[in-house]
Structure formats: C-alpha cells, structure tokens
C-alpha cells in the first residue's frame, strides 16, 4: 500500500563523499539512493555511475514506481577515461569513478539544462 506523503517545509539535500561510498557495493548504493529519494530528498554523490549502473538505477526506480513515487530524475558528470585507463579497467575490473551524480524523485527535481560540462536543476517546493 502506498505511503501517505507528509508535507515538508523544504527540500533536504544530502551529500555523500567518495570516501563514504567506496566501501559500499553497488546494490547497497542503489538501496541508499532509493530510500533517500523516496523520502523526497535530493542526493549528491561524489562518484559517477557507469552506463550499466545507470540502467540499473532506471530499472529499480521503475520497479518501485507507484502513485506517490513517479520515478527519478538524475544527472551528473562522468569520468572521462582515456584508452589506457579503459583497458586497465577491463583487466583489473576497477574502473575510474571520478565524477558526480545528482538524483532525486521526479516530484522534487526537474532538469532544466544538461550538457557534458554543465547542469542546471530546479528543486520543486510543493
């Protein structure tokens, strides 16, 4: 059954450092993201997601979609690996995660403009 939304005075923005995130498995990060955005917070991670992880984020948000939670809006800057780093990552399994991810419920966050080097977002206060 869908949880009744509480009226909030503002939007809480949470920042999570690279240090805090590096100990967590991706599934844990995904749960942490979903818990936070479903609580109508905006989460800023000091880490980029790769394409496969972004697809998993979309899948997870679709699976949890209901009348009160319409899904997520996310944006960010990805690390740009050179060819040597890409080869190294495919051998060692450790890829460069430098970058940034901003994610929130699409009820709360709205993308205004995004390109490779700049993002602008609006946090909606309802």
């Amino acid at each position: 059954m869908a949880k009744k939304k509480k009226k909030k005075d503002g939007v809480k923005i949470e920042f999570l450092s690279k240090l805090r995130l590096q100990e967590k498995a991706f599934e844990e990060k995904l749960d942490l993201i979903m818990d936070s955005v479903k609580d109508e917070n905006i989460l800023v991670l000091e880490e980029a997601l790769n394409a496969e992880e972004k697809a998993q984020l979309i899948e997870k948000s679709m699976e949890e979609c209901d009348e009160d939670f319409p899904g997520v809006e996310f944006s960010g800057f990805d690390s740009r690996e050179n060819w040597f780093e890409r080869i190294l990552a495919s051998i060692t399994g450790k890829e460069k995660k430098d970058g940034l991810l901003i994610v929130g419920s699409s009820d709360v966050m709205e993308k205004v403009k995004e390109d490779k080097d700049a993002i602008s977002m609006i946090a909606k206060l309802e």
Partner: peptide, 17 residues
C-alpha cells in the same frame, strides 16, 4: 528536443559497452 539526456546517455553507453 535536447538530445543530451541521461536516458540517451544510458542507452548509448550500454550498447557501446
């Protein structure tokens, strides 16, 4: 429409991988 969206980046990134 503006083409640079996370949905398009995600689709293309997965196919490229």
């Amino acid at each position: 429409e503006d083409p640079y969206t996370q949905v398009n980046v995600t689709i293309l990134g997965n196919l490229e991988a």
